[in-house]
Design a binder for these strands. Structure first.
Lengths: 215, 215
DNA sequence: GAGTGTGAAGCAGTTCACAGCG
DNA sequence: CGCTGTGAACTGCTTCACACTC
């Protein structure tokens, strides 16, 4: 099996993202080979799980030796689509939007926020870093001009769906949603929700019921 | 079965949090009864899934009628531990920390951030809202004085584990982690990770492989 | 010997389908 | 009749165990 044959399960993809971080750390500390057990240790999972995850991508391990840090790093970057630069638009330049904009790891991983939209007239025309904030009316034009691949939604819940409809119409195929709404998207558009409230409420459930949940 | 007999699966808890939002919306628009199909519609899931989820809590539906919005709201709030106020400490008053601090929905749901810690001497003593930022050295004292239930970690990755060890030692039983590290915690402490990078990389994977993932 | 790759078994969450109640 | 609650079937992820390779 190789990286093109099969679909990689969602749960696996999320772990691959972690493994990649660990591999980069190992690489920086000069480690050249790493065993599934070592990755498992760092990731709070099991060696069998790591091997199963990696086996979805192909056979990159050497028996008795483990995986080449350098090779596996390359493979994971490729599988996760991190060897191209993705052009990202940020919708909403409020507290959360601004924090995301300035989050260094995004840029380091090849996610370039080249467009920022906000509908507050006081903000339009202002700068975020070296980018001029544009008004909602320019949405389609901006997405098209900048050939945006992916959109981060950080606007208030009530306006999110309307904006996203337009974004999808404009041909964007991936949406990362920070607004506390369940967005409705057509087939073929990838969506991920990051909900601060949901996670916090899971913890509050755990506290109230004295049950331990981990993730 | 009632709300105290059995463990509620993790996947269900996350959906309960969503259902609660929908119920509150329905309540505001004056709807008094709601069928599983209506909740499913809003949540992008199926009616059977909703009923199965709710059946973990007990039998609150009326056949032929659906669920009482008011009653179900009360039950969900209780199951999610939202009828008490939780005292929260924020570690890290950087971009992300500040954004979280000012995120209104937290407070509205009963999560009160009463303590803010940062190790930057320039920030210590400054105010965030009406709270004085305290130095790292005061961590244990602050947690204890404020009887903190839950900690939000928004510090740089390299210092996160050290701080969390002290937090756990001080008796805190729930941690919401925004730092891009895999924290190691003892049994019995609830942990949730919110990783901007993982979600973004799932999307980039989907884009690169032209596969659609939703959540 | 050390450590991978993988079928097979085990487990958990989801979907189905329908009996039963209001 | 409409809609819930739930066993039973199903699907998919995780764990196990071991043959196999370096």
């Amino acid at each position: 099996m190789n990286e093109f044959t099969n679909r990689v399960p969602d749960a696996t993809v999320r772990r691959l993202s972690l493994y990649l971080r660990f591999l980069e750390d190992f690489g920086r500390s000069g480690v050249t080979n790493v065993a599934s057990a070592a990755l498992a240790e760092r990731g709070g999972t099991t060696a069998a799980q790591v091997r199963k995850d990696l086996s979805h991508l192909g056979s990159y391990g050497k028996r008795g030796l483990g995986y080449s840090v350098e090779e596996l790093t390359r493979v994971l970057r490729s599988v996760l689509g991190l060897d191209s630069v993705w052009r990202v638009a940020l919708l909403g330049a409020g507290r959360i939007g601004t924090a995301l904009f300035e989050y260094e790891p995004f840029r380091r991983r090849g996610f370039h926020i080249t467009t920022v939209i906000d509908n507050d007239p006081a903000k339009v025309g202002a700068r975020l870093g070296d980018i001029r904030i544009r008004g909602e009316g320019e949405l389609e034009r901006a997405l098209c001009e900048a050939r945006i691949d992916l959109v981060i939604v950080a606007v208030p819940a009530p306006v999110a769906q309307g904006l996203v409809d337009r974004v999808v119409e404009a041909g964007v195929r991936a949406v990362l949603n920070y607004a506390p709404v369940q967005l409705r998207l057509p087939e073929g558009v990838a969506l991920r929700n990051v909900s601060m409230l949901v996670e916090l409420e899971c913890l509050s459930h755990a506290l109230a019921r004295r049950v331990c949940h981990s993730a």
